[in-house]
Amino acid sequence: MKMSKIVRTQSGFLYPFILIFGLYIVIHGHLTPGGGFQGGAVIATGFALVVVAYEYKDVRKWITANRLSLAEVTGLLAFIITAYLGLGSTFFRNWLANSGSIFGSRVPPGINPGNLNTGGVLPVMNLAVGLEVLGGLGVIIVYMLNYLKRGEESAG
């Protein structure tokens, strides 16, 4: 069930922007509203858009359930391993905050535009959750698409 050329062109145009917007929400999770879950969900809507606009057999080549579930597992593992790395003091310890390395700057006091390089393990965990959610929701979308295809077969 291919949509018209107008829809396909438009969705192809919008797709990268949706992905970038989702990534923006994920990576700014510790500074602005949103975070891993919300950003991951936005990215998954990008998949949904492509799925609606194009044919099943085309989409299945680009977005596979196998790869998405791999992303899901990787996200979950990254999250829990980040938490484990805090075991030097306690589990879930924010061991990166104020360390001077990546995401380790001190938070500037007072009103400021927001320094992305702060937050310690928070942005790391946001990235992990983002990966997990885009994988998980993506898998759900792909499986639903599977039923869409079956419906077409029985109708045709």
């Binding site: 579930s69 597992v73 979950l76 593992l77 829990i80 938490a83 306690t90 589990f91």
Partner: peptide
């Protein structure tokens, strides 16, 4: 002293890695 936390999170880590 980490035993109470480990009891909860060891099944989590192992569980997340199981699909891999």
């Amino acid at each position: 002293h980490h035993i109470p936390a480990l009891i909860i999170v060891i099944p989590l880590l192992w569980g997340f890695a199981t699909p891999l």
